[in-house]
Structure formats: C-alpha cells, structure tokens
Amino acid sequence: MTASGRGVVALASKLARSLAGLIVIVLLGGFAAAALVRYSPGFDVDENAWNTKGGSSAAEASRVRRAQENELLPFYWRYLKAAVKGDFGESESYRVPVAELLQDRAPVTGRLAAWGVAGGILMAALCGWLAVWPRVPVLELVVSGWVALLLAVPPAVLALAFFFREAPIQVAVALAILPRVFGTIRAILRDAHESPALLAARSRGLGTGVLAWRYVLVPMAPRIMALAGVAAMVAFGALVPIEALCDVPGIGQLAWKAALSRDLPLLSALTLIVTFVVASIQAAGELMTPETIHSKEVAE
C-alpha cells in the first residue's frame, strides 16, 4: 500500500469513528433528555387539569394518550424505531405530528440563528480586533464597555426592545451572541497577536489577509470551531426566551411550550436534533484539527 493510500484509509477510519461516535452521542442525549422529562414532577398530570371544564373525561383522555410514555425504555425504543422513518410522534401540547411542527418552524429559527451566529461572530471579531490590534487602551475600554452593556441586557428584553421599535430581531439575536463569544475571540486574537511567529511575519511585511489566514484562522481553527458550536448553542439558548416573548413561531417557542407541558415526544425530537447539530459541529471541528493534517503528513 502506498503512503498516500494509507493516509486515505486513516482518514476514512477516522470519519467512520466520528460517525459512530455521533450516533451514540445523539442516542444517549435523546435518552437523557427523555429520562429527565419523564421523571420530573408534573409529567403525568394534564396541564388543563386545573380547569373544571376539563372534567374527568379530559383527564382520562390525556391518560390514554400518554399511557405509552410511562415506561421510559420501551417508549424510547419505539420512538427511535419510528423516528428512523421520520415519524416523531404526536405533540402532546399541540396535537399535531411533531415532524409537521418542526417542518413549519425550523426555517424560522434556522434563519434567525444563522443571522445571529454569523452576525454575532463577525461583530465580536470586529470588536475584538478593535480591542487588541491598535493597542489603544481607551478604545479597548470603550469596546469593553459596549460589550458589558450588551451582556447585561437579557436577550429577550433586547429582542423585545427591537420588536417594539419594529426593528429586525435578527440584529438583536446577533447582539445577544456578540458579548457571549467576544471574550474568547479576543483571547484568540490576543494570543495570535502576541505569538512570536506572527511578530516575525509582520516584520517581514506580509499582508494582513495572509497574516489573518495563516497565523490566526488556520492555527486557531479548533478553537474557532469550538466557538461556533458554543455560539450555535448560545443562539438556541437565547432564541428560546426571545421567540417565546416576541411571539416568533419557531423552534424556540416550541421548546418553551413543550417544556412547560412536559411534551415528551416533542422534547425528545428537539433534543435529538440539537444534539445532532452540536455533535456534528464538534465532529467537524475534530476532523479539521491539525492532528488530521499532521497524521497525513506523517503517513506520507
């Protein structure tokens, strides 16, 4: 076998292991979530039980609907089997198939989150650059003050303020993400800025673009990927209250409602998806690490 052939095999086996790991993680995550929901108080009481109009029939109907959710393991097994075929069960709180709900709402949240993550990271990078590169303490303080202000405002309140002024909520999401990734981005930039290699390169007069690529983006890729994962999670975490409060019909609003009404099928589906997204970002990050590139070089 040639050296490069061995490299390909190594890469393929790494890919396969990543994929297997991903599946295991998603399954475990889904199970952990289902267990948490199932064993939290209020699981088997109907949310409308506090309402005389519900009467005993409503309670009975709810009991019948949820009977198969009582035994956690069999429930999860059945759920996974159906989920493979794209059937995520029927939402308890909406009485609509979960798949349908997700289909309707995923684009809304997806757009918001994408804008938010991209905008947030870009703005944070800009702020970080302003704070690190020019080496002007006052500028650094102004930027820090701005970030601190953003950090102090609850994302939902920020979004509401935008909403009431009829301004785009995407910007509010980005502004909510900015301060939460700023610290790390600044640390990355600072490390890069102070690294001897970069100093040497600068003294040789290399262009900023080349510098940014070769000495910031490439070596920092694992950290940036980890950051993107965190930013995506922050975005989703922030979108739950934002969507719930600003009445955006997205996944976040679903998650909030599902949590309050112990909607097991819906919450399981949401966790499976979220775990999948996070794990994929993680796996992508790992596959991109210099280790992979490195091992290839060694193989050659």
Binding site: F43, V45, L260
Partner: peptide, 11 residues
C-alpha cells in the same frame, strides 16, 4: 410551574 403544582395538589 403549573405541572409541578398540579402534581402536588392532585397527586
């Protein structure tokens, strides 16, 4: 939250 409350007063 309503779920926990109902659990206590009903069950």
């Amino acid at each position: 939250d309503m779920g926990s409350l109902l659990e206590r007063i009903r069950k």
